[in-house]
Design a binder for these strands. Structure first.
Lengths: 339, 339
DNA sequence: GTGAAAGCGCTAACAG
DNA sequence: CTGTTAGCGCTTTCAC
């Protein structure tokens, strides 16, 4: 099976190479009949243009880069990323982009790979998963005008496109629901306060308390790291302050929190009601099943890809923003009566 | 910042384009002094060769494809894949390969993307995650002589390289341990019998029984699907047959099995001892913590990449094989006395 | 509408 | 050891 090229297809169809190129790229200026004939040859031979030649001659590579810094910390602890990837991959498939994965485990890896992202040599655009406040990567991408979509809005106000979920409102709703059920001493285990998602969910918690004029009690607010172990330790601390309910800022931490409760001979919602955030698959089968704020992770991935493609086609400015709504899923852990 | 090319670097260093190319590619035939000078210019300017031009002129793209068919089913249920990806990504970073992800959710997507894999246009080689017996992709890859490494050996004997873990021995060890502890009526919840990992772990279970001349009881052997829900349903079935212990072929299924036990008012290891397979992060914090067979997932990913690079450099034949050992991690779920 | 021709930036013989 | 010279397969003006 010798290599098919534009040239050969052209010869087989009795036209010039340019015409075949036009057909392949859906250019308007081709007579319908010619287009049909060429297309037929392409189909019969199973010709596929060489991506390398294409990106060299054109300017685009047809590759979208998904960048996940700090992959060590998060990638395995949480089914969040697999799910996000799935959405992104699916959208890439739909829109004929190839997905490349850039996982940075160390500073060193980040240093080494950053150039490949900054010059558009390799990727047409970048989807950047949530970063700590201080990561320089995002500003480098902006400066170099690399088309970029962030997953989760940036901490500082930056001229960058992003997709996000309504973390503040979602957390508000969850805590408000606890209040509705009669809880008055509500603790919180929140995420790292140097990430936007950490800050936002915390803000939602505070807003809910404020909306009922309940003063925030510092001893009931613990910053953790979105991990199971972190949730476990935080809940251990919290128990001694005797909250009647706890808002946990992620399902994964909630799992740890429940474990701490069990070990202390307590349970949810009997002793302490628990609500959390994410609605990952295991939330429904946890013991007890978690009341939690569902966020449409996969859809977020799809949105990010489509936004990026929009950026590619219509220019970077102005930055685009999209915020997906969340939904409170009520299960046993919060103590609600479930019909 | 105008584009840097070989040509420009050559001019700046006062040599020819070829010489710069040689320096970049670590070719031997360059006078050390010249090499030094050229390298300096490269460093100062921050030059990076254009990957598209490179793959067009050379034959390699510098991209490794990770192919995960049936991504829908597995990718989210199990932290296995994230972990594997991490190993693969890390090894790619180390060896200067870019990782591209091919997730197939539907037959249709597989159809559409397969050509990109088969002609080496796009990827230099492929890492293929475990497939059902009947998937045609692997034989297509072999026929087209695409350098391929499978994760998990194929069901049929095929001339293909793979990395695997000692599933048979690992399962044997786990079940043997139960026998050692005095269990005599040992059930099993095994994986799909159209996958090699499903078959192998089941075989290990059967071997262990046979080694003590215990006849296998069909009513105690249930085929499931590696999911939490599957484990849950299987254990529900199993309970009525009153096993004194159960070998569960994955941690994720074990979680479901424990849930079924809990719901039936029973517990492990009191009523039924449980051992499982994988040692995923949550195994240690399950309730009770799982005795399980650890497999070095991340290392497997690294091995796969390195094997693929070996294939790329030294030819496909003969196929290479690597099998990583497993290790039994004893925790509470099996009823062993732990110091 | 269509074809001819000029590169995109690099690698890899082939001379020297 | 180093420079010269062809292309790799495609996109894209620019004529016709």
């Amino acid at each position: 099976m010798n290599k098919l090229t534009l040239e050969k297809i052209a010869k087989l169809a009795g036209v010039s190479r340019s015409t075949v190129s036009r057909v392949v790229n859906d250019h308007p200026n081709v007579k319908p009949e010619v287009r049909r004939r060429v297309q037929q040859v392409i189909d019969e031979t199973g010709y596929h243009p060489d991506p390398a030649a294409r990106s060299l001659a054109g300017q685009r590579s047809g590759i979208i880069g998904l960048v996940i810094p700090r992959a060590f910390q998060f990638l395995f602890t949480d089914p969040y990323y697999p799910r996000l990837m799935q959405g992104i991959a699916q959208a890439c498939n739909t829109h004929n982009y190839i997905l490349s994965l850039f996982l940075f485990h160390t500073e060193e890896e980040e240093q080494k790979l950053t150039p490949k992202l900054l010059r558009q040599q390799f990727v047409d655009g970048v989807i950047l998963s949530a970063l700590p406040t201080d990561d320089p990567l995002i500003s480098q991408l902006i400066k170099n005008e690399v088309p970029t979509v962030m997953i989760g809005r940036p901490v500082d106000t930056l001229p960058v496109s992003y997709v996000d979920v309504s973390n503040v409102d979602g957390a508000f709703e969850a805590v408000d629901y606890l209040l509705e059920l009669g809880a008055r001493r509500i603790g919180a285990i929140v995420g790292p306060q140097n990430t936007m998602v950490g800050l936002d969910r915390c803000q939602g918690y505070l807003n809910a308390l404020a909306s009922r004029h309940i003063p925030a009690d510092e001893s009931l607010l613990i910053e953790s790291d979105f991990s199971e172990a972190g949730g476990y330790l935080a809940m251990q601390q919290l128990i001694s302050h005797q909250p009647d309910a706890v808002f946990v800022a992620s399902d994964t931490m909630a799992l740890g929190a429940l474990r701490a409760l069990r070990e202390a001979g307590m349970s949810a919602p009997g002793d302490i009601a628990v609500v959390s955030f994410d609605d990952l698959p295991f939330a429904a089968t946890a013991d007890p099943p978690l009341t939690t704020v569902r966020q449409p992770i996969r859809r977020l991935g799809v949105q990010a890809v489509e936004m990026l493609i929009d950026l590619l086609q219509n220019g970077l400015r102005p930055p685009r923003h999209f915020t997906a709504p969340t939904e409170l899923i009520v299960r046993q852990s919060c103590g609600a009566k479930i019909k």
